[in-house]
Nucleic acid binder design. Structure first.
Lengths: 234, 234
DNA sequence: TGTACATCAGTGAACGCGCGTTCACTGATGTAC
DNA sequence: TGTACATCAGTGAACGCGCGTTCACTGATGTAC
């Protein structure tokens, strides 16, 4: 926001300080984790009295919420940028690019990834305000699914079509045109991507994988192919 | 262990107390999470002075290690029991049974699952002593892969055979007979299962899935089929 | 343009709490002769 | 079988630390006339 007549010096200072608070908290996150996050430590970092922070943040949990929203938004923006860049490409490249964009962000910000997709913080319940931010990445992926062609193998019959009812909430969320087999395979592929990322970032592939970024290439290509989301172009 | 001549009253008491300590810590885990785990709280729970615990446990981190090993072992035992039960079954049922066994355990012990497969505890480095316990579940799955027949679609060529090198550590871990395409697809399927479980247990499917256990049926069957680990029997 | 008042930012002390770990000590259990 | 000594279990006090949150207060910024 450019400085405008309606924004007083106070309002400007306020915005900057909130940004500084969240930035400091985010740094802390990488060292002590979300549970260790401390209002007092942020205050120390900014050379303020700890009580001063309460002019900007209602509570420790509120600070955590700000952090979560900011991080979801950052990841969402990454995904959306990636979507915009390859809007005209075929589904194969869109899939691979999106997967790599998400992984690239996650590898660059492992603690942020862990906050979003790792263990929920005990005693903390994310307020509804986090939902729109959380939905951004997912929406990008769902739009990709909607672009999958009619005759794609992703649409071949499911093993257990009788169980599609368990997916009711998801079908409502997706554009009406996306068929159920594609939705199911999409969710499975998406789960596999995050499972792969969590395995990598949380250390469960130690010793098994020698080159993680090559493995990611292998994995994303194979997931796209085996679920039929992408089709070999040869 | 039955009471024997060589086990003095002290040794018996010691074992039971360690068991009680870990049990109490495990209960705490569900409430405050691994980071909130407290030696003093365990001592209170057992009506002991907090200093007394240091006769049994070297430090807070050591307590965490005991917990992790016990939990990995428990999950490993579940998987091995499942393996023993359907030793004579075909790969399809072995796959489905194993997936459901793992999920059943995870749903029954979500906090334990989170400790093993969620965010690593900041500042805690799991000692090598945890490795054998951690390997048990995985080994069960790798043995299942080894049982996949020669002509299975899981063995069809990979999308990116040029990248199989990134998997070097894994091929060493698996029995020599298991071919690379099967190994890769197996790892991806395994990652997808844990991705699915994490999504479910960490709340990322809220609103999307209406019946989680039916969805699990759907998901495991579809994963098995699309990766070619299992083959439709009709 | 200047003044009077209201609003906001930031301070520092305090409350009440919890933590991991150490240490000197008492009393019980085990062992060797 | 009984006694002397060594080992272990458990205590309670203490050290030094950190935390979230509240509250009365001072001084700066904004607003209405």
């Amino acid at each position: 926001m450019p400085p405008s007549a309606s924004r007083t010096a106070r309002a400007i200072a306020r915005e900057q300080l909130i940004a500084a608070i969240v930035a400091s908290a985010r740094e802390q996150l990488g060292v002590v984790g979300p549970v260790g996050l401390s209002v007092r430590a942020v205050a120390r970092d900014l050379n303020m009295a700890s009580s001063a922070l309460y002019r900007y943040v209602a509570s420790r949990d509120d600070l955590l919420t700000l952090l979560i929203v900011q991080i979801y938004d950052e990841l969402g923006a990454v995904a959306e940028a990636c979507e915009a860049e390859c809007a005209d490409a075929d589904v194969s490249t869109r899939w691979l690019t999106l997967c790599h964009a998400v992984r690239g962000w996650a590898v660059a910000h492992p603690h942020d990834y862990a906050l979003l997709y790792g263990t929920p913080v005990p005693g903390y319940a994310a307020p509804a305000a986090t939902i729109p931010a959380a939905t951004r990445v997912t929406s990008v992926f769902v739009r990709l699914l909607a672009a999958i062609p009619e005759d794609s193998p992703a649409g071949r019959p499911l093993e257990r079509p009788d169980l599609v009812g368990s997916i009711a909430g998801l079908t409502a969320f997706a554009p009406g045109t996306t068929r159920e087999p594609v939705l199911v395979r999409g969710l499975l592929a998406w789960s596999a991507v995050f499972g792969t990322l969590s395995f990598e970032l949380f250390g469960h592939l130690e010793g098994a994988i020698t080159d993680y970024s090559r493995y990611a290439d292998l994995a994303f290509a194979q997931l796209g192919a085996d679920f039929g989301l992408t089709v070999a172009t040869t």
